[in-house]
Design a protein around this nucleic acid. Structure first.
Length: 191
DNA sequence: TTAATGATGGGCT
DNA sequence: GCCCATCATTAAA
């Protein structure tokens, strides 16, 4: 197992988005270890009308302009936190939205974090769902992905097919093919 | 100070 | 599949 470092994130957003598929997000909390596999991502690039950074720097999107390998969390629709990883070199905005993951380890804790959810498939098959499942909140804003308790590791899995398509839930830049997911995976948020 | 808006989820039918 | 709760951020005034 190898923890992805700053060099991994300091590249083209679309490339990072694709290569994050199949990797494991690890969150250590209260002595427990939560591990989930990334199965769906979206890239948000510089000069991309759907990217929060496209209209310049604001207090909210500030972290996107900073060094890569950090967490950008965003609150949406009054209820949901969305998890993004900052990409590209410093002063170049870019981020990868994590849209869906598959539980690998600590599913009891994940069920606990998502009270009232009956089917395991509904635990992490959406961007707002997975943040709740992993206990990710605004406190994660700007957190480094190379720390001890929250990081992404390369588990060596490469035996899957990447499906590329257009992004979801945006009004501008709809035609840009920056959404990627593992073909055939049950946990993708939408076909 | 205020109002519009949105990278959505969940429950009910 | 349809409907709606819910609030941080933003731009305008």
């Amino acid at each position: 197992m190898k923890i992805l470092d700053k060099n991994f994130y300091s590249r083209d957003t679309s490339k990072v988005a694709q290569e994050l598929l199949g990797k494991n997000i690890v969150h250590k909390i209260n002595g427990h270890e939560l591990v989930v596999k990334i199965v769906e991502t979206e890239g948000y690039l510089q000069n991309d009308p759907a990217c929060h950074a496209s209209r310049g720097l604001t207090p909210r999107n500030k972290v996107m302009f900073g060094p890569p390998g950090r967490v950008y969390v965003y609150f949406s629709y009054g209820n949901h936190w969305l998890l993004n990883f900052v990409t590209e070199k410093e002063n170049v905005p870019g981020a990868v939205l994590i849209r869906a993951v598959e539980p690998v380890k600590g599913i009891e804790i994940i069920r606990n974090n998502r009270p009232g959810i009956k089917k395991d498939i509904d635990l992490t098959n959406g961007p707002g769902k997975l943040t709740q499942a992993l206990a990710i909140t605004k406190d994660f804003y700007g957190l480094s992905l190379t720390g001890n308790n929250f990081y992404v590791e390369n588990n060596g899995i490469k035996t899957f097919e990447i499906f590329t398509t257009t992004r979801i839930g945006i009004s501008e830049g709809c035609e840009l093919p920056y959404r990627y997911y593992i073909k055939g995976n049950k946990f993708i948020s939408r076909k």
